[in-house]
């Protein structure tokens, strides 16, 4: 295995783990489309950070993107509180922010090559060539450090607030009655989602970051009813999909992020059909056995 393959697989694995981990909370809190909204809104942050600093990439752009993502969740909450339906609030917010980003980009940065295709699809294959150098020591690809740092932060914060996050995910009203600051925790968690998405989409792009956020978590949701298991399974299925996708992409010479998302979809399909308790086939089998076994009782 070449060193480039190693770096790409490490990055893909880290992206899958961090997205899979935080995605579990998004699914339990019924906020799957919020991930979508955040991943689109960050474009505005990237453009604004670029217009302010005139530097492509780097810490400022990352911060701008993360803040824009957080701002999107704030706007959604505001509109929702103001009486808009949640789906309408999300739709209005992210399209508005994305459109503003595109317009600003064309007005003030027309000469800059800020590649929208790159933002939308990402490119994992280039990861090994963008190396982080500190005092003339090569520290490995920048993406590994960004995604690793985002994952580390998520693990740290979630570790400190594990019980609180869990209560908020399952029963926010109960959490509120316990005196837990639900709204504050909501924004803490949205910050984590935002940071994770921004770190991920540098490598896999905005649309497929949503796939990595939601699909492994949904797979795990079908496989287990226990929270701890769901977190673990989500990370594992994410990483398995990412690596399978990478192998397929190399084999067929297609887009890595596209293959990763397709693999994640395929794993979900398997769980949808065969998951022991919630899969379609086992459920149908159980039903048949029931009707056969106790004809009178069930009918």
């Amino acid at each position: 295995m070449l060193i480039e393959d190693f770096w790409v697989m490490l990055t893909a694995g880290l992206v899958a783990s961090s997205c899979g981990f935080i995605g579990v909370y998004l699914i339990l809190r019924r906020m799957a489309m919020v991930g979508d909204a955040i991943s689109h809104s960050v474009l505005l942050g990237i453009v604004l950070a670029f217009l302010a600093t005139r530097i492509l990439g780097g810490v400022w752009m990352f911060a701008g993107a993360a803040v824009a993502g957080l701002f999107a969740t704030f706007l959604i909450q505001l509109l929702h509180r103001g009486g808009a339906r949640e789906d309408a609030a999300i739709g209005v917010t992210f399209t508005g922010l994305f459109a503003l980003g595109v317009v600003l980009l064309s007005l003030y940065a027309g000469d800059v090559h800020l590649d929208t295709e790159h933002v939308l699809f990402g490119e994992l294959a280039y990861v090994p060539y963008d190396v982080l150098i500190w005092q003339s020591v090569e520290l490995g690809p920048r993406a590994v450090w960004t995604v690793g740092a985002a994952f580390g932060l998520t693990l740290l914060v979630t570790g400190l607030l594990f019980k609180e996050f869990k209560v908020c995910a399952f029963d926010p009203a109960f959490a509120l009655s316990l005196g837990i600051p639900v709204t504050l925790l909501h924004y803490v968690q949205m910050t984590l989602v935002s940071v994770t998405t921004v770190a991920a989409f540098e490598s896999v792009g905005a649309v497929l970051a949503v796939a990595m956020l939601i699909v492994p978590g949904a797979t795990a949701y079908l496989l287990t009813d226990r929270f701890g298991w769901m977190l673990g399974l989500s990370v594992v299925t994410g990483v398995v999909s990412a690596w399978t996708g990478y192998a397929v992409a190399v084999w067929l010479d297609v887009s890595i992020s596209g293959a990763m998302a397709t693999a994640a979809g395929a794993v979900f399909g398997l769980a949808f059909l065969f998951a022991p308790r919630h899969g379609v086939l086992p459920t149908a089998l159980r039903r048949r056995r029931l009707t056969r076994g106790g004809t009178g009782a069930v009918a």
């Binding site: 699914i27 019924r30 906020m31 799957a32 489309m33 991930g35 979508d36 789906d87 649309v207 497929l208 949503v210 796939a211 956020l213 939601i214 699909v215 949904a218 949701y221 992020s257 596209g258 293959a259 998302a261 397709t262 979809g265 979900f268």
Partner: peptide, 14 residues
């Protein structure tokens, strides 16, 4: 919305 996200990212990645 979870089902939606799964399906549309799947179709998109195709």
């Amino acid at each position: 919305d979870t089902s939606l996200a799964i399906l549309f990212t799947g179709a998109f990645s195709i």
